[in-house]
Amino acid sequence: MINEAQKADEPSLVGRLYFVMNLYAGDVLEGAARRVGVSQANSSRWAHAWNDAGVDGLRPSFGGRPPPKLSDMQFAELCKILKEGQPWTPRAIHTLIEDRYGVTYDSAHLSRKLRESGMHYVIKPRPMDPRSPENADEILAERLAKALGEEYEKADEQEDDPVVLGFFR
């Protein structure tokens, strides 16, 4: 049976048949599982499948990968939209996909799919932190004056560009 499974290019079935062979050779479930490199849960499931249906019970029954959430045409349309409306934040891309196509993607998977299609997230630097107050320079000058005392105020009057050695909280 193992030779037939190898000729038919069924590597999953070959491993499961070796597991059964190890059981018939005298191994307990844990030992047979360890020899083929599977978990205790899988070994128990395989033993039940063998007892219930023989070789056919050991054949994998999954049908492969699930179908993609977006068709090739939809994904091409998405890429076109993203190229035309740049720049996009990751959150905005997720919202677009959910609103337009009614599906959600894991962030890592979506970024991988976009990279494979030649697109990359780009970090766009902000000229200023939007949370900072408008009078941030004045606040900094006041805090430095308080922290450094009179010497700073005198130096500030004498020089246009004083040297600041550190930041204080």
Score class of each variant (00 low, 15 high):
His94Tyr: 05
Ser107Asn: 12
His94Cys: 01
Ser132Arg: 12
Tyr105Val: 01
Leu70Pro: 06
Gly64Trp: 11
Ser44His: 11
Leu58Asp: 05
Asp52Arg: 01
Ala147Gln: 12
Pro90Trp: 00
Arg59Gly: 03
Lys69Val: 02
Ala47Ser: 13
Trp46Lys: 04
Glu77His: 08
Asn135Trp: 04
Lys80Cys: 07
His94Phe: 02
Ile97Trp: 00
Ser43Trp: 06
Trp50His: 08
Gly102Arg: 02
Asp106Asn: 14
Ser43Phe: 09
Gly85Arg: 15
Glu84Gly: 06
Arg91Gln: 13
Gly118Lys: 13
Pro133Cys: 06
Gly149Lys: 00
Tyr101Gly: 00
Ala147Ile: 06
Glu157Pro: 04
Glu153Thr: 14
Lys146Val: 03
Arg115Tyr: 07
His120Ala: 10
Lys69Tyr: 02
Asp137Trp: 08
Ala76Trp: 05
Val103Lys: 02
Asp129Tyr: 05
Ser43Gln: 04
Ser43Val: 00
Ala141Arg: 15
Lys83Glu: 12
Glu138Arg: 14
Asp156Arg: 06
Phe75Ala: 13
Arg45Ile: 07
Gly64Lys: 08
Tyr121Val: 00
Lys69Gly: 06
Asn42Glu: 03
His48Phe: 03
Ala155Ser: 08
Val55Arg: 15
His48Gln: 14
Pro66Cys: 01
Lys69Thr: 06
Leu82Glu: 02
Gln86His: 06
Ser43Leu: 05
Ser44Gln: 08
Pro68Glu: 08
Met128Pro: 07
Ser107Pro: 07
Asp129Thr: 14
Pro87Cys: 04
Ala49Cys: 03
Glu84Lys: 10
Glu77Gln: 15
Asp99Thr: 09
Ala108Val: 14
Asp156Cys: 11
His120Lys: 14
His48Ser: 14
Leu140Glu: 10
Gly149Glu: 02
Arg59Lys: 14
Glu157Leu: 12
Glu159His: 13
Val103Cys: 12
Ser44Gly: 09
Ile97Tyr: 00
Val103Thr: 11
Gly149Phe: 12
Pro68Cys: 01
Ala49Gly: 03
Leu114Asn: 01
Asp137Cys: 13
Leu114Val: 01
Gln86Ala: 10
Lys124Asp: 10
Cys79Gly: 07
Glu134Ser: 13
Lys113Leu: 15
Glu153Lys: 15
Ile97Glu: 00
Arg115His: 09
Leu148His: 12
Met73Pro: 02
Gln158Lys: 08
Ile81Arg: 04
Pro67Asp: 09
Thr89Phe: 06
Glu142Gly: 13
Gln40Trp: 02
Thr104Asn: 09
Lys146Leu: 11
Thr95Cys: 05
Ser117Lys: 12
Tyr101Ala: 07
Leu58Lys: 04
Asn51Lys: 09
Gly149Ala: 04
Ala76Pro: 03
Ser71Gly: 08
Ser61Thr: 10
Leu110Met: 12
Ala49His: 09
Ile139Val: 15
Ser111Thr: 11
Ser117Ile: 05
Lys69Pro: 02
Gln74Val: 10
Ala147Met: 08
Arg100Met: 06
Trp50Tyr: 02
Asp129Glu: 04
Ser107Gly: 14
Glu142His: 15
Ser107Cys: 11
Ser111Phe: 05
Gly54Lys: 02
Lys154Asn: 09
Asn135Lys: 00
Lys146Thr: 12
Arg115Val: 13
Thr95His: 08
Ala147Trp: 01
Ala145Lys: 07
